[in-house]
Computed example of a mutant assay.
Amino acid sequence: MPKDVLLVALGSTAGLRRAEAGFAASLARAGVSVATVTAAPQRDVRTLMATDLVWALAARRAAVAGIAEHAPRAVVYSTVTAALLWPRPGAIRFDAPAAGNRPGRHGLWQRPLERRRLAAAPLLLPHDAAALDDLGPAAAAALRGRVVAVPIAVDPSGPADGVRDLATITYGTNPHKKGLDRVLAAWALARRPGEELLVAGIDALPDGLGPAPEGVRCTGMLDAAAYRGLLRRARVFVTAPRREDHGLAQLEALADGCALVTTAAPGPYAALPAARALDPRWVLPDGAGADALAAAIRTALDDPPADLAVRGPAAVAEHGSAAIDRAVAERVLPRLLG
């Protein structure tokens, strides 16, 4: 049966799958018929160039099948990678372009093809308008007229004023990019007896960082409900990324009432303004050392605002489902479907 919109989802990470499901739900709440096709899971390969190729091919296969089955009026590709080998032009929803997160040899084939895809797309739907900055001033200016920024929907997962019996938590997938080594070094300095850092998303610390020392525990992969339950119990979410393309985990932490201690990483880091508004002591310069990060962790643990459980969710209200639904209905669909 024909659909209004076909969403070609990459689904390569848990965070991306949540974002894709949320966007599809927002489209449906706006009253359009939407079908989602998802790229088949891919094995790990050695380089980012090869990783993007196998996922782009998988997304193309999913798109070809979805277009044949659903005859959509419009196609939305989730991520630039999903659009690289598209069988039909469509809107592109993305957190960051390859121009920013695939530097040097890592993006030799992706970057030039990305420029052509962005130029040909009828509509661009970045999670944050700052994502275009990676393209350079001239290229970004040429695309602005086809851009509607639509953040990932982030809502509180439950009451944020419950017992906070966990000290700190971080998200450990893609550990080098997320600066897990920096977090562990800072935690070794900041920790007091009985306090624990939970590292969500991985079963064990990667080679070179493990085994986990006292006061550090890996949770393994968790479903969304279990992970958000930990956020509602944690006092501080800490991260020191080398680059942040969006920061979904950080936005979720704020929505669930955690303090957010972070470095101001390059990239369209959507949670930074909210973290600074809550307490500028928690946001350190990019590349800050372990001593400074440890001091910020202790400040967040020992001297948080009394009303953090209220102010944290309020700080990310613009990312809530109601706000995203309005943007989709009022700004996206008129341009996507005409």
Rank of each mutant, 00 (worst) to 15 (best):
P41G: 09
R18W: 07
R29H: 08
A19E: 01
D52G: 12
R17D: 10
T79Q: 09
A58F: 00
R17G: 10
E69L: 09
A59G: 04
S26D: 04
T47A: 09
T81N: 11
H70Q: 12
A28V: 09
T13I: 03
V34E: 06
D52F: 12
Y77S: 06
T38L: 03
S26F: 02
A28W: 00
G31R: 07
Q42G: 05
A62E: 06
V76W: 07
V76P: 07
D52E: 14
A35Y: 03
R43D: 15
V64E: 14
G31F: 07
R61Q: 14
V75C: 10
Y77E: 06
A14Y: 04
A19G: 11
A30F: 05
A14W: 10
S78K: 01
L27N: 06
S12I: 06
A65E: 13
A82R: 01
A83H: 06
E69T: 14
T47M: 08
T13N: 02
G15I: 10
L53I: 00
L48M: 13
A74R: 03
S12C: 03
V37D: 06
Y77C: 07
G22H: 01
A24G: 07
A82I: 02
A19H: 08
T81C: 11
P72I: 05
R73M: 02
A56V: 00
A74T: 08
A14L: 11
G22Y: 03
G66I: 10
L53V: 08
R29T: 06
A21R: 15
G66C: 12
S26H: 04
G15K: 04
V64R: 14
A63L: 09
A58L: 05
A62T: 03
A59L: 02
G11N: 06
P72C: 07
V32M: 04
T36D: 01
A35T: 06
V76I: 15
S33I: 02
S33P: 02
A50I: 00
G15V: 08
L48Y: 13
L16C: 09
R43I: 03
T47N: 11
T81E: 05
A24E: 11
A71V: 08
V80I: 15
R43E: 15
A82W: 00
T81H: 05
T36R: 14
A74N: 09
L27H: 02
M49E: 15
A68Q: 12
R73E: 10
M49G: 14
V80T: 13
A28G: 12
L48F: 14
V54C: 10
V80E: 12
A62S: 10
P72V: 06
L10P: 00
V76F: 07
L10M: 13
R61K: 11
S33A: 15
R17Q: 12
R17F: 01
A63S: 11
A83F: 05
L27I: 03
H70D: 10
A65M: 02
M49I: 00
A35S: 13
I67A: 08
A28K: 12
V32A: 07
L57P: 00
R29W: 05
T38I: 04
R61S: 12
R73A: 15
A59D: 01
T51H: 15
L10H: 03
A58P: 03
T47L: 08
V64S: 03
A28C: 02
V75I: 14
L53S: 09
S12L: 05
F23I: 10
V75M: 07
V34D: 07
A24H: 09
R73S: 12
G66K: 11
R18H: 10
T79Y: 04
R46I: 00
Y77A: 07
G22M: 06
